[in-house]
């Protein structure tokens, strides 16, 4: 479904050019449950941003369903991002003043999708938040906020959910609950979930682990499996 061909990303800083990603080759299909692991500064967030069409690579080709993302305008990338990807962040990234239902409606609003209320309520119910619909973030627990964020990422029926340290701010029990939800999405709805994490016990719950160090992929269990097969 998505293919990265020789993707590199440089940043120009005062100290010179810094490479965040070097020659990354990667392809991801449907119903995959992937974790990207690496130390901070290894380039895993940059990789996720490029996959999610938030950032553009400095070099290389990025194909989504055979569309070359590099050729799209900023607005078209925004639309593609809104349609294909759902984002979940470590710090939830909810807007402070909106109620849960309004948070979930937001992506629908930007994509001019009708039945916003019904779809948002549906997404919140599927996250077990039926009694939290009109609560604002400061009235919700961390786990509940993250579930609102997942509902927001799900409401547009994305093909891929990108989650940056989704369990990082949660206690173990709530973290496991979030992972269970992701697993269910992969199994039942055919969505691919990509998680960035540095916790091995979280990564172990996924089906494929990609390890990154200094902007390079040093391990991809998918390839190992394929090689073994």
């Amino acid at each position: 479904m998505i293919t990265l061909n020789s993707i590199s990303k440089y940043y120009e800083t005062e100290a010179g050019v810094v490479s965040a990603l070097v020659n990354i080759n990667l392809s991801i299909g449907e119903s995959e449950f992937i974790s990207i692991m690496g130390q901070s500064g290894s380039g895993k967030s940059t990789l996720m941003n490029i996959i999610g069409c938030v950032d553009r690579p400095s070099k290389g080709q990025y194909l989504i369903d055979n569309i070359d993302v590099g050729t799209l305008s900023d607005s078209n990338r925004s639309r593609l991002r809104g349609k294909l990807f759902g984002f979940v962040f470590q710090s939830y990234n909810l807007l402070p003043r909106l109620s849960a239902i309004e948070q979930v409606e937001l992506p629908l609003l930007y994509q001019q999708i009708d039945n916003r209320k019904e779809r948002a309520i549906q997404a919140l119910i599927s996250m077990g938040l039926s009694d939290r619909i009109h609560h604002t973030p400061n009235q919700l627990s961390g786990g509940e906020q993250q579930r609102v964020a997942i509902a927001r990422s799900l409401v547009v029926n994305p093909k891929i959910i990108l989650a940056d340290e989704p369990t990082g701010a949660l206690d173990t029990k709530t973290g496991l609950e979030v992972m269970r939800i992701f697993n269910e999405l992969v199994q039942k709805q055919g969505i691919s979930v990509i998680i960035i994490t540095h916790e091995s016990n979280i990564a172990e719950q996924t089906n494929r682990i990609i390890r990154i160090s200094d902007g390079k992929i040093i391990e991809d269990t998918d390839k190992i499996v394929k090689v073994k097969a």
Partner: peptide
């Protein structure tokens, strides 16, 4: 955040 959820 708005950009991430699809705002142009």
């Amino acid at each position: 955040i708005r950009r991430a959820v699809g705002a142009t």
